[in-house]
């Protein structure tokens, strides 16, 4: 008998759950599109299904993996975040993908920050993110998470940049941690809510 149990994480606006069969169409829409160009895509339908199954199987094999990011109110999916370490990965990666329509709302930051905190509570002493140098959105997110380029660390294929995340101690009640919390809080409840843009 083999049991697979995937924990659920909850944040201010989001619920992170294991990938479920009914979420597959959302995953497929992104991974068969140009949006997936920095993540080995675009994939055909079979490859997309295979990768989705592999996302789930990763949990069974490693004991950790990628969560599906859901809106806490509507249950709508926004993307995925979590830990990733298939064969050939030099170190454990903190990874994320946001569906194109859910960009710009801070969901990736909120989900990834929670995922990293969960892994740090459960014994990880660090993490890296492997990012295509042309993937500016992901580089920006890595920086907002406090990660910095580690030029000495081995990359996956020589093309990607290794961003090293702050160690657990650097996130424990520090200014960096408060800054991330504040940014997330600001997305959830902005101080300035423009009613529209001024037109000349």
């Amino acid at each position: 008998m083999t049991d697979l149990a995937i924990p659920t994480l909850e944040t201010n606006r989001l619920i992170l759950r294991g990938p479920e069969p009914q979420d597959y169409p959302d995953f497929k829409a992104t991974f068969t599109s140009y949006r997936a160009r920095f993540m080995g895509g675009p994939l055909n339908a079979y490859e997309a299904w295979m990768l989705y199954a592999a996302e789930i199987g990763h949990w069974a094999i490693r004991g950790y993996g990628m969560w599906m990011i859901h809106d806490k109110q509507t249950d709508e999916t926004y993307g995925m975040a979590g830990g990733w370490k298939p064969a050939k990965w030099p170190e454990t990666e903190l990874a994320w993908v946001i569906w194109p329509g859910a960009q710009g709302k801070g969901y990736a930051l909120e989900a990834t920050h929670a995922a990293r905190a969960h892994f740090y509570r459960n014994g990880w002493d660090g993490a890296v993110s492997y990012i295509d140098p042309k993937n500016l959105d992901s580089i920006r997110l890595a920086e907002r998470l406090g990660a910095t380029p580690d030029k000495g660390a081995p990359s996956i294929d020589g093309n990607d940049v290794v961003y090293r995340h702050p160690a657990p101690a650097a996130l424990d009640g520090t200014q960096l941690a408060h800054g991330i919390d504040m940014e997330i809080a600001h997305y959830a409840d902005p101080l300035f809510k423009p009613k529209g843009y001024a037109l000349d």
Binding site: A53, I56, G57
Partner: peptide, 8 residues
């Protein structure tokens, strides 16, 4: 990993 995920 896909083999494992197929079960789920």
């Amino acid at each position: 990993a896909m083999e494992a995920g197929h079960w789920l």
